[in-house]
Design a binder for these strands. Sequence first.
DNA 1: CCGAAAATTGCAACCGATTGCAATTATTTT
DNA 2: AAAATAATTGCAATCGGTTGCAATTTTCGG
Lengths: 343, 343
Amino acid sequence: MSQPKEITIYDIARELNISATTVSRGLKGHPTINKNTRKKIAEKAKELGYTPNTFAGSLRSKRTNTIGVIVPRLNSYFMSSALAGMEHVANKNGYNLIISQSLEDSKKEIENAHTMFNRRVDGLIVSLAFNTENIAHLLPFSTRNIPVMFFDRVYNSEQFTGVVIDNFAAGYDVTRHLIKQGCKRIVHLAGNTLRNVYHDRLEGYSQALKDHGVPFDPHLVITSNLSEEAGVETAQQILQMPQLPDGIFSANDNCLVYCMLELKKAGIRIPEDIAVAGFNNDRVCQIIEPNLTSIDYPGYAIGETTATHLINHLLGHTNIHNTNTIVLRTELVVRASSLKRKE
Amino acid sequence: MSQPKEITIYDIARELNISATTVSRGLKGHPTINKNTRKKIAEKAKELGYTPNTFAGSLRSKRTNTIGVIVPRLNSYFMSSALAGMEHVANKNGYNLIISQSLEDSKKEIENAHTMFNRRVDGLIVSLAFNTENIAHLLPFSTRNIPVMFFDRVYNSEQFTGVVIDNFAAGYDVTRHLIKQGCKRIVHLAGNTLRNVYHDRLEGYSQALKDHGVPFDPHLVITSNLSEEAGVETAQQILQMPQLPDGIFSANDNCLVYCMLELKKAGIRIPEDIAVAGFNNDRVCQIIEPNLTSIDYPGYAIGETTATHLINHLLGHTNIHNTNTIVLRTELVVRASSLKRKE
DNA sequence: CCGAAAATTGCAACCGATTGCAATTATTTT
DNA sequence: AAAATAATTGCAATCGGTTGCAATTTTCGG
């Protein structure tokens, strides 16, 4: 099982009777190396089957061309889209992604952050776990001048840049839309309000109610982890309310879909009895019946934007420290699930 | 912008008046180091805020604790589930994942393989692009004794291990099920038959027809890239057939769902006019109406299995070279979309 | 043809940990 | 208490590129 010997720049140098320095520079296309020499080096490298050893280089140069990504979980429609967007941008620019999941657990998020740090990622992209309360684990990155960017689940801090949508406005829009459809008792399925996204959506909801003279009833705000199971449970809770609501605004589609199915099973008509609207514009929106009104939340674009900004910063084209927040445009996509009246 | 100096094992060594060797071993929990010394080292390391530099270590030890993953795209339900499974196993074992997408393009897959090689991944996991015809780009890994494992889209080779399901059997089961429901003209939505998964499903379909005396009609096999758009187009093709089919077996759910929506729009009743069944047991199966019969294709488990085997091999617990293929169990999940007769 | 400027190339230290082997120290055994 | 064995620790080379600065070669004007 002996490993075949690794071909190094020294091998190339020896065969060409030049120094390793020249080979190193030649391979990098360094301008001070003679064109002709460069060609010879390239040829010999190919001939010998040379492959650069990234570690050796990174050790010295302190650049790894690696971006760490920590997400709550990578198998949701939104997340995998965002990751796909990041990977695309990164790959195009010669960067690679090391991806890890916190599984919504702050402790694991901290561990992962350590790993990323040890791996000397050039930059870090994070979407926070459900229960992360502070970002002490990210401070070593700042100390080291390693840029950290949040996306989606951001942390309110002067120190880091985040890519988000205007969750308040989106929550407001959805709620207003439901009110305009005649809803008076609107349930809000909320997530952990520790996270900006859920907090802001709830605020938007409250404000819209207020602005339109609809009383805010805390009993109508159901907080959960917004999972599929939570959707089912929520439906049961709703069905047991002394007075049924006439609208639901959910902070995510996934949960709402399962809630809808359960409500339908119980004979509730949507949107006639209850108008519903979600958040994310998940693929299922166009598949469930009735089609689901939702906020279009461009995962791929968010991923691209985040990665682009981070890489531009790394390349020195821009400085993200000047930017606190990047807000992407969203859009309310109205579909049958919320249309009580013909518009 | 000067970087704060990096803390190394030498700093710890100096402060403790011992050698760097001892520090290195101490941190790794090497048994020959005195327990007491070990404790002192650990304390000092924490005190100074030491973080190991993975590169330096990897350079010397030639182990990176990194697994490369190349997938066609990472934003599909199946893929992101598989990746989630892999990440979970890898993380548990101290490995990290470098993930890249080929975007179904063989050329990009080759580039990505190079990158992975240069990064000296300890092992590689691949699911092939639609149009990859050979695996020359993976041979350097074999030469170097770097284990490569396929999953899902595997390459038929003695050389590498793959984790798959029995696509033939699954295709056979679905088709037989449709036949038993009384279908006589069953359309098959096929993918690129260069890929085992689609090839085998088609074979299973053919064989089932044959075994049950249903004639095979090549016009009923519609090959596409199985995208959402393809689903819509396929529906239009079907609607223009001189004689409508009475069943559809699609090689994936995603495409079929869009096809169904289009057919329903045209007034086709499912399953009465056309019974349909898909493949993957995607989340949408339980959401679309009627609920979709499908083959449960356990993405998360496939990811876990693949990563587990690879890591066990890396740790020397098992040797994947003894294993050619690992076949996971699948199951036909029957739902309303295919039930022409009460069972 | 000479000397200065420009273009190339090389020296040698360095990045930070790992490791085979030898050396030192502690513990037992006789 | 000396000898033998076991437990710890350290030396010094090594992994494979990168980089500041000096050295060498080439080019060219006069």
